[in-house]
Amino acid sequence: MRITADTNRCVGAGQCVLTAPQVFDQDDDGLVTLLLADPGAGEEATVRLAAGLCPSGAVTVHED
């Protein structure tokens, strides 16, 4: 599993940071930034939840 985060789409709701704080953070502008682009199996469920909760579709999970 690989994740990408699009700061152009991000609206800073912070849902990803609340859901998976080991994987997502907010930068000085409050926009999404990845702490881990390739999280381990233990994070999969929370990462998927975070992507589904993002109100602006800024977080994408790639299955490659």
């Binding site: 800073g12 912070g14 609340l18 926009l31």
Partner: peptide
Amino acid sequence: FRKALIPEFTVRR
């Protein structure tokens, strides 16, 4: 407007 305000409402802030 939204972008200017986002830093004021981050989880950390």
